[in-house]
Amino acid sequence: MKLNIPTENERLKRLIQRVEEDKELEELWRCSNVNAIDRLGFTDHGPVHVKIVANAALRLSHLLEGVEKPGVVEDHHLPQEYSEIVVFLAAVLHDLGMVVQREEHEKYSVVLAHHFLQKLLYDYPPEERAIITSEVLHAITSHYSGVCLTKEAGILCIADALDMEKGRARIPFDAGKVDIHSVSALAIENVEVLKGEKKPVVIRIKMSNSAGIFQVDQLLRERIRKSGLQDYIEVIAEISETEKKILHRFELR
């Protein structure tokens, strides 16, 4: 699967190609959606989600390059380019645990990710492979629960929440799952990660209905706070002048 990730980082380019060519990994992404969408009626946790999160995470990594030292730089004294590697690998592997179970899926993701990290990093020196693996596994388990102890983990935590546009919620909504999560997500028309003026990053969200505030105020706000990077991120949510009706009727059952 093509991830369409632009980068000048040569190490990262090679890893992107390896991920794109890994048929086992691609099949597990599909299996994640069998559980998430087909069996549980949840939103996409498969290939499209992975692509969106990976691109958003690397975009955040680039915009935040001048603030806070990454874990691999601060604690392991590796070059800056390795931080992008950690962010990318964590992004493409973070939801693999959905093939096992939704509850505590991040913990199952850690187990499954270890196998792929050894494959993808086969030509790295053992010491570097161990460091990258440890940092990726921390970021994965921290994206949903636990504490983000590194910049890379915080970036993944936010990037995961940025996949909130209406296309992701359409499947469960059309299947009859009508709740504040699906309705509010359907109100999100567009999400952009841009270079900010007041802060390094501005996340600009366009909504067609005020219900989208739930996604921003309850979900994204918590992820940004949890990331430890809240001082560097500004969020602007704009509602169209003419609000689009999402529901015509709602019944409690």
Rank of each mutant, 00 (worst) to 15 (best):
R102P: 01
S145D: 04
G154I: 09
H105S: 05
V110N: 03
A153H: 06
K119T: 05
L137D: 00
E104G: 01
R129L: 13
T150D: 01
P125Q: 07
L96P: 02
H143P: 02
T141H: 01
L120F: 10
L120C: 04
Y144D: 02
I132L: 15
H114F: 14
L120E: 02
L121Y: 06
E104V: 08
T133H: 07
L137A: 06
L149H: 10
P125M: 06
V136G: 08
H114V: 03
M98T: 07
P126W: 08
V100F: 04
H105M: 10
P126F: 09
H105D: 01
I140D: 02
C148N: 13
Y144S: 10
G146V: 09
A159K: 09
P126I: 02
L137G: 02
T133R: 04
A153G: 02
Y124V: 10
Y124A: 11
E103G: 00
I132C: 04
Y124Q: 13
M98S: 11
H143Q: 14
C157L: 09
R129F: 03
R102M: 13
S109L: 07
V147L: 11
L149G: 00
H105C: 07
L137C: 08
D160P: 11
L96M: 06
S145I: 00
V100H: 10
K119Q: 11
A113Q: 07
Y124T: 00
E106H: 13
T150I: 06
Y124H: 08
L120S: 09
S145E: 11
H143Y: 05
K119S: 06
Y122S: 14
S109P: 02
Q118N: 15
V99A: 03
E103Y: 12
V111D: 00
T141M: 13
H115Q: 08
C157Q: 11
G154C: 04
P125D: 12
L117P: 04
C148I: 06
Y144R: 15
H105T: 06
I131W: 08
E104M: 13
V100L: 05
M98I: 11
E103Q: 14
H115K: 15
E103R: 14
E135K: 13
E127N: 06
L137E: 11
P126Q: 12
C148D: 12
V99C: 01
F116I: 07
E103S: 14
L117E: 04
I158E: 04
V147E: 15
